[in-house]
């Protein structure tokens, strides 16, 4: 060797810097935002959970008081259970509808673009528009749901006014809003599946339904994995439709975790309490997401 060990090291460093330096340069704005808007606030929020005091009043260290109060707060529990209940309704429904529409769209050959646009529209519509539209759907007197019930000769329902139906009604709005997104996602995944596999299955004697169960579903596993985890994370954050349509009512039946965090943080001026609850939500979300990932991976 004509170069010493240390010279090699130095040259290698310089070479690597040249090789990766540009990458870091391009990453740096993103990293900056990541730190400013995620990492630093994360620790701030954590610090906040151990303090009382509002935005205008000085903070005071209170130890685990916020944490223990959240655990003892029946409304906090209620809102968390409501959120889980909501997810149990909304996620399977939106997936079933999204997948169904995607399967239909895959076969559609006419007016493809306008149909896809129509299906995606609810996702793009601002929540206020969605909420307004939904008021017309669930209105007891002239709403779509009750009109259909009347046509079927069934008793009408006070959708948002009844504690038993309010949360499912919110879920229906969120399903309507979300189905476009999932349809497009599933459709993209479906279109990416190799047609040869389905040809092979046709020859192997699998009918449409069995092709769906034995091929489509398992082949879409990566998509499912993404969808389930993301849907969990997103749906844990149910807030705006609740805030606009019911503000948690009637009688806390639509109080959700993020709604309650918002209330405490911004309206009741208890950011420490809101922060503590946010952390509980973070932990629950993480645990659920990890469990889902594990379950899905294991099957692989």
């Amino acid at each position: 060797m004509q170069y010493s060990e240390s010279e090699h090291k130095r040259l290698a460093r310089a070479y690597r810097f040249k090789k990766y330096g540009v990458a870091y340069l391009f990453l740096s704005p993103n990293l900056l935002f990541f730190f400013i808007f995620l990492v630093i606030p994360f620790f701030w929020v954590l610090w906040l959970t151990f303090n009382s005091g509002g935005i205008l009043t000085p903070t005071k260290f209170v130890g685990l008081q916020n944490w223990s109060r959240v655990l003892q707060d029946p409304t906090a529990w209620r809102s968390l259970l409501n959120t889980l209940y909501y997810m149990a309704i909304a996620i399977p429904t939106v997936f079933a509808i999204g997948m169904g529409l995607a399967l239909l769209l895959k076969r559609t050959t006419k007016f493809v673009t306008p149909i896809r646009a129509m299906i995606y529209f609810p996702t793009l519509a601002p929540i206020v528009v969605g909420a307004l539209l939904w008021i017309f759907v669930v209105h007891p007197d002239f709403g779509l749901f009750n009109t259909m019930l009347r046509l079927l000769g069934l008793p009408i329902v006070n959708w948002l006014g009844n504690p038993a139906t309010a949360l499912p009604t919110i879920a229906s709005l969120e399903v309507w809003r979300g189905s476009g997104y999932w349809t497009v996602l599933f459709l993209a995944a479906l279109l990416a599946l190799p047609t040869e596999l389905f040809d092979a299955a046709k020859i192997d004697g699998a009918g449409a339904i069995r092709r769906f169960w034995h091929l489509t579903l398992p082949l879409l596993r990566p998509t499912w994995l993404f969808a389930i985890v993301m849907a969990t994370i997103w749906n844990f954050q149910l807030f705006d439709s609740v805030y606009i349509l019911t503000d948690g009512g009637p009688n806390y039946s639509t109080a959700t975790a993020v709604w309650y965090i918002y209330k405490n943080t911004f309206q009741f001026d208890k950011p420490g309490y809101g922060a503590a609850m946010s952390f509980f939500l973070l932990i629950i979300t993480l645990v659920l997401a990890v469990v889902e990932l594990r379950l899905m991976r294991k099957k692989a």
Partner: peptide, 20 residues
């Protein structure tokens, strides 16, 4: 006659093996 009832088998260029 649908493919499955034609008594034919097919081998594909990309094999079309079911990956899962």
């Amino acid at each position: 006659t649908p493919p499955k009832d034609r008594d034919v088998a097919m081998v594909f260029q990309n094999y079309a093996l079911y990956p899962h």
